[in-house]
Amino acid sequence: MEVRTIKVFTTVDNINLHTQVVDMSMTYGQQFGPTYLDGADVTKIKPHNSHEGKTFYVLPNDDTLRVEAFEYYHTTDPSFLGRYMSALNHTKKWKYPQVNGLTSIKWADNNCYLATALLTLQQIELKFNPPALQDAYYRARAGEAANFCALILAYCNKTVGELGDVRETMSYLFQHANLDSCKRVLNVVCKTCGQQQTTLKGVEAVMYMGTLSYEQFKKGVQIPCTCGKQATKYLVQQESPFVMMSAPPAQYELKHGTFTCASEYTGNYQCGHYKHITSKETLYCIDGALLTKSSEYKGPITDVFYKENSYTTTIK
């Protein structure tokens, strides 16, 4: 009895394709271990004539594949690729409408935090270190965002349907971005203890939790000093293409032309909904596939993004 075979390709990165001759009487799992086709788990399936010449994702289970996976995804987590594939199996079914010149995501599976993050990423200057993220990001900007969303979920250790947080998501993504040249110098002034300067680099240099107003941050924000008295913390120097200011959701007025974009969060910790506000020729609110415009805006804002380049204080 002759062994019926077909020729397929296996890959971990969709760049390096490895030619395989597979036995049609055995499952993919018996031949390769966990195997995925377009995100779908085909591990328990036997090869079919229609699979001839198709590319299958496999887990990096030998040295060659491990090197290829690390170079593309910059992670050695053995569960990463499987999590990416199972997320992709959902995100490829989502709709990605162009809204006001940006790629958004039609609401499904509690994905409003991903839509808000995706919209924000198209408006701030950011370059990702893992080629996987950078490639998928370019495709997302062009309207094909399924891979990018699935990668975000995998890097953030999230599953489809789980509630997510924009600030946490951005923080994970910033860790995989090139923020080497970003720098922030802060000064804390206390009447009792004097003053202390701190220099922050990388992710810490672009994120701040405690106030939404970048102007206020430049002037000074009140913080408790270690001595128990009130101290003032203010920005001395900022070198970065953008800054992200966050605070627990509270009524906040966004003035046209003073910011790049913002995240609105309605609801409580267990259950809520994100919308995205962007400042173009007027203010726009993007909620999944829905767009509304207004000249002014007041609502429960939790993150505001500002364009920056270089700032030095005039406070002496």
Rank of each mutant, 00 (worst) to 15 (best):
Y274W: 07
R66G: 12
F259Y: 02
S294M: 15
A250S: 09
V188M: 14
A177C: 15
S263N: 14
V304W: 00
Q237L: 12
T266C: 05
R4F: 08
T103S: 02
Y269H: 12
C261R: 01
H48Y: 14
S213G: 01
T211R: 04
R141T: 10
A87P: 02
G210W: 00
T19C: 10
K93T: 11
P249A: 03
Q270L: 12
R167S: 04
L283K: 03
Q270N: 09
P300L: 11
A145Y: 04
I277V: 03
V99Y: 07
R139W: 09
L37E: 13
P34G: 12
Y57H: 13
S104I: 02
G202S: 02
K158R: 09
Y252V: 09
I315C: 15
A132T: 09
T116S: 11
N16T: 09
A136M: 06
H256W: 14
G220S: 05
L17W: 00
G257D: 09
Y284Q: 11
T226H: 15
Y113D: 05
F32A: 09
D23T: 13
M244N: 01
R167W: 04
T159W: 06
E52P: 09
M245C: 08
H74P: 02
Y155P: 04
D303G: 01
V58Q: 08
T116M: 05
F128H: 03
Y297E: 03
V221D: 02
E168S: 01
E281A: 03
Y155C: 00
E68T: 07
T199C: 12
P224Q: 15
V42P: 09
G220Y: 00
M244A: 00
G39S: 13
E281F: 02
L88N: 01
N14R: 15
C225L: 02
F70M: 14
G194A: 10
T76V: 12
Q238T: 03
T199V: 11
Q31R: 11
N110A: 12
V58H: 09
T313R: 14
T10W: 08
F80E: 01
P60R: 03
A117I: 08
L88G: 06
L283D: 02
P131V: 01
L151C: 07
G257L: 01
Q195S: 15
A231Q: 00
F242L: 01
L133V: 05
T120M: 02
Q123R: 04
L88V: 07
K191R: 11
Q123V: 03
Q238D: 04
K106P: 08
V42D: 01
E162Y: 07
N110W: 00
N157F: 11
M207R: 07
V58I: 14
K54S: 13
R141K: 15
F305S: 00
T75M: 15
S86P: 07
T302K: 01
N61E: 06
D180N: 14
V203S: 11
T302W: 00
L200E: 08
L200F: 12
R184A: 09
L17N: 08
Q196V: 09
P241C: 06
Y274R: 06
T258H: 08
Q238Y: 01
S279I: 01
P97C: 11
V58G: 05
P224M: 13
H176V: 05
F242N: 05
P47T: 04
K275A: 03
F56Q: 01
L153T: 04
T292F: 13
L88C: 07
L179S: 08
K229F: 09
M207G: 02
R66S: 12
E308T: 09
T64S: 13
V160L: 06
R167A: 01
N157H: 10
S310P: 09
K298P: 06
W94Y: 06
M209E: 07
I152W: 00
F259V: 05
C190M: 02
Y72P: 06
P130T: 10
T292N: 09
Q197F: 07
M245Y: 15
K93S: 10
H48K: 14
G202L: 05
V185W: 02
F242T: 01
G220Q: 03
K127G: 07
K93I: 15
F259C: 03
K201F: 14
T159N: 11
K93E: 12
P224G: 06
S86R: 11
A142D: 13
S79F: 14
D13M: 04
Q216I: 03
Q222S: 11
Q230H: 08
E239R: 08
K298D: 02
Y36P: 08
D303Q: 04
S310C: 01
C190G: 05
Y265N: 03
V221K: 03
Y284N: 01
T64N: 12
Q238R: 03
K219I: 07
R167M: 00
I152G: 02
T266V: 07
K127E: 14
A136H: 10
A108S: 12
H18C: 06
V21M: 14
N111R: 00
D165P: 00
D63V: 09
